[in-house]
Design a protein around this nucleic acid. Structure first.
Lengths: 199, 199
DNA sequence: TGTACATCAGTGAACGCGCGTTCACTGATGTAC
DNA sequence: TGTACATCAGTGAACGCGCGTTCACTGATGTAC
């Protein structure tokens, strides 16, 4: 078809963008290369001009998703101090909100890819682990701003525990959304209340 | 081959048992019927004498895994009061232990099947939700025995929040085991410490 | 600046392979008499 | 209790299908002169 280098790079990004969404929603093995390419606006064959294999794409997807996830987090943490809520409060409430629960495709990639990378291992898992560490650092910053002093536990430790609870609550809420929506909301609410008081 | 009804029922259970393990370890779509049957000691064709389809097996597997998971929980909660540790303490420490992290195949099915059922929906998800509810009830009992009074929050609410944190910690620890074992252990440890003090 | 040609992103048919499922066959089980 | 026969769990080859991947082809891009 003939396409400029610039346009080709755009197209590569479009494929990755489609994959970061679809892989979170349905899992890597739940999305075929043909469907993926179609969803990005191309036909199947072109895939291999950009990636060596589907596994190669998975690695690129985790890198991209983690970078994007970190950007979202940082932006959220230092968001314009609109409203009276603290950073901490806003972060928790947003993370455990219905819109976030229902938006697996562009929601927190740590929650969306956790099970995937535990089975994949390798490079994607390394990217994921780096992304997790970055997130913990940002959250520790939020806790510091909150003045969440604790003689026994470091900020990092507290951030890891908080993030674990948030991720668990989100994954559990998502796991029963379709058949038990009331239970799903109850899970979010119980965790919001548990995290309402300072940890 | 010719097999008694009794033996046939045993064989059906063996297939389900193999599947509850393999599906947790590698996901439903990561295990083929042929491999599954081989792992249970049979050839592929016999599968359809016991189940209408692979989806039908998935439903049976979730029922079985939830029943077994509940039995494990109840047993753990009322375990012989050996040692000085409280039920609560024992539960948390075991849940966040390395052996439990490394035993996805027969570990907590709520953690092992969470992502799977969020995509599957339907009957398997209903079984899962029932299993989750049962687990919350058992945990609320453990918290009650601990005298975890809290004027603001019900025992059920506290149990849901606690379980969310445990499940999140386990899933996150598993997600980085292969490439970042130190981080994986740090996640378990941070949550153990966070839950050491009464919630 | 203009022309000739190599490059390479995109197309879509085709490949082999493993999947879930079906089938004809087998032989011990378990029932009818 | 013994014999004849229907049942049905288990076997393993075969089915169609969708998967990841390859390929010959195309035409605009972008370089050489």
């Amino acid at each position: 078809m003939g396409v400029s280098k610039e346009k080709a790079a755009d197209n590569r990004r479009a494929i990755i963008a489609a994959a970061t969404r679809l892989f979170r929603e349905r899992g890597v093995s739940g999305v075929g290369v043909t469907e993926l390419m179609k969803s990005a606006g191309f036909t199947q064959g072109g895939f291999y001009n950009h990636f060596e294999s589907k596994d190669d794409l998975v690695a690129a997807v985790l890198n991209a998703a983690m970078a994007e996830g970190k950007a979202d987090l940082v932006q959220g943490a230092k968001a314009p101090l609109a409203g009276e809520a603290s950073s901490y409060r806003r972060f928790v409430v947003h993370y455990l909100s219905l819109p976030h629960r229902d938006d697996v495709g562009s929601g927190c990639p740590i929650a969306g890819f956790a099970t995937e990378v535990s089975r994949t291992g390798g490079e994607p898992q390394s990217s994921y682990a780096r992304g997790f560490d970055d997130a913990v650092t940002v959250i520790a910053g939020v806790l510091a701003a909150e003045g969440a002093a604790d003689g026994q536990r470091t900020l990092r430790e507290q951030a890891i525990a908080l993030y674990s609870q948030l991720v668990g609550a989100l994954i559990l809420a998502r796991s029963v959304t379709e058949t038990k929506p009331a239970l799903s909301e109850e899970i979010l609410e119980a965790n919001r209340r548990a995290l309402g008081r300072q940890d």
